[in-house]
Design a protein around this nucleic acid. Structure first.
Lengths: 338, 338
DNA sequence: CCCTGGCACTCATGTCGGAGGAGTGCCAGC
DNA sequence: GCTGGCACTCCTCCGACATGAGTGCCAGGG
């Protein structure tokens, strides 16, 4: 186990490195932090920290840089979460309050996160899997053509076109609409299938094929749209990666363009509590020099989706974590209200 | 007016520069293109082209680079549009055909364009302004709470929550729904307002406030959502800007993150025919070293939205224009079918 | 046992000067 | 009007050298 002072040295190294973006030496450390010991002592401590793998020397006669393991220790033991100022909190609330619909909420959240953290923001749309049905609407666009509209409690709307084998009467449609809604409204998506299985039986023989195809489309929508959407923002902040630019930024941009990668990124985060993945802890190679800070958010107690930021491993963890947590809370509130 | 050969020299310079990304000298030109004259002659021509402002010398004793004006001439007079191979066309069609809904069509289009052109792709959602109403639906979520759903002929769905001052009966709602649809279905958005103005008069005194507020929300949606959405993709291709990297890419990423800028970018494109904006022809400073190739697309004869790509002024114009035009055509077809 | 000052050593960075080379402009000749 | 020749410019690429930050190690003191 590392002594108290050595931990203090590690903390100082991380803080200075995050601030200056340059390897930090023993002399600079003692000058900027009141450690109460001389540079020589710090050098000894650094040698130990390097042996243990917490810091690393780019080359002989250079300062030290934290390793992923060093950041991990820093995040786990040394850093708290820095709360936002009340002014910042108020600004967040105001900004999110003026959203008009779900798209707008997500869009604003992304911009907000990117601006607050000066990093790349990632926000997952509230998941359909965990949400419940608020209403199902059936519209006859043409005699044999029905539009199915699904409205969720998170304000999301999905629509599908259904082509029926035969024309469907308006009364049949109204009947189906009523029965369908009475069974599924308020239910979770995952609970819906068994609830509607026997619905066709209540209809005339002639109408059953149409009813079945409508139900099939509904179930399909529930499954298909579980494949979730993600919004991304603040990619211009990637240009803050100052060193060997093209090599660093390229794979990151490429990774971020893939929905699958983003989904997995957030998917790996714990459902509750904040998750921080540092450097090589990320599954994706392109993200090996970035850290991901993610947290779940939701309208109630339960998380319905996740959001977070992607930034260089050399990031201000306490500040970033504070911003991410605060934004998640406010988004949750907004969703609960609507 | 420039002589035939001088134009030929300019074309050669543009082609070589696009290929090599390096200033091109007189000797290299005569070697790679059969101009039938000696390097010395080419040098004289280059001096003229430089006087006229078509090319530029980074410094004495360097080769020449086309200016924006040079590219402009190249695009207008010297370059054709390079059609895609049949294999490419088939791939495009296959890829777009498997889209399931509007979001998917737009998403696939963006990815396709980015991949084909190796540049940043921008696709505008089919505009609500020019589209027509397919259906308006009103759902009572609670006695005094109505959800308004608007469905357009381009397959887009918009929803709004309406809080009424007093409960609204189901029959009143059905009545309003029927009257509303009979008046607006098939109409263009811009034509709707005068058509519904007198609707409240047909209702009981008690219900009029609710009816009015529903109508107001509808009109608001028509206007607000005219503010169009845009999808972006292929930003990783920006890393192909090889020179003085951070300085070039930063303002471009920033510009592309602003919806307003993107909208204006496409908005400036002509409604019909392809538009190419080169370097400083773009209104936005951050885009002064990029060119934009845009074209309208639509389900019928009329363009309902635009799409295009953003790339370095040093781009393969014929190839890019070919890809953009082809993609626009196929997207138009897909929209017409659905 | 731990801390400290001193000292020699390493190595990245910045500067300078010169060689090399690509490309130009101009001129005289055909 | 085209061409070959030639002098000139100026960027780029080393290699050498000085500089300085930072280290590791050691001997001495609390």
């Amino acid at each position: 186990m590392l002594s108290e002072r050595r931990l203090e040295v590690l903390r100082a190294i991380v803080q200075d490195y995050v601030g200056t973006e340059e390897p930090v030496g023993s002399k600079a450390l003692t000058e900027r932090h009141s450690l109460g010991v001389s540079p020589a002592t710090v050098r000894n401590d650094m040698a130990v920290l390097e042996d243990e793998g917490y810091i690393h020397q780019p080359h002989t006669s250079a300062g030290r840089v934290p390793t992923d393991k060093g950041y991990r220790l820093f995040v786990d033991k040394l850093a708290g979460v820095k709360p936002l100022s009340t002014a910042e909190r108020r600004a967040i609330q105001n900004f999110l309050d003026s959203a008009v619909d779900l798209d707008d909420v997500v869009g604003r959240t992304v911009r907000l996160l990117a601006q607050l953290t000066r990093q790349v923001a990632v926000v997952q749309y509230p998941s359909l899997t965990r949400s419940t049905v608020r209403h199902v609407e059936l519209l006859a666009l043409a005699p044999a053509r029905i539009m199915l509209v699904l409205i969720t409690d998170t304000g999301r709307v999905e629509q599908r076109l259904v082509d029926c084998p035969a024309p469907v009467g308006e009364t049949v449609l109204a009947d189906l609409r009523a029965r369908l809604n009475s069974r599924v409204v308020g239910r979770r998506f995952s609970d819906v299938p068994p609830l509607v299985q026997d619905l066709p039986e209540g209809f005339e023989q002639d109408d059953r094929p149409a009813v079945s195809i409508v139900l099939a489309t509904l179930l399909e929508t529930l499954v298909e749209e579980t494949e979730e959407r993600i919004m991304l923002g603040g990619t211009a902040n990637l240009t803050r990666f100052n060193h060997d630019f093209p090599l660093t930024i390229r794979p990151v941009l490429e990774a971020l363009e893939e929905q699958m990668v983003l989904l997995k990124l957030l998917g790996e985060a714990k459902d509750s509590g904040m998750t921080v993945r540092i450097g090589h802890e990320n599954f994706h190679e392109g993200l090996n020099s970035t850290s991901v800070v993610a947290v779940g958010y939701g309208s109630g107690d339960e998380a319905v989706a996740k959001l977070g930021v992607v930034g260089p491993t050399r990031m201000d963890y306490p500040g970033t974590m504070g911003a991410v947590r605060a934004v998640a809370r406010y988004v949750g509130q907004i969703l609960a209200e609507s």
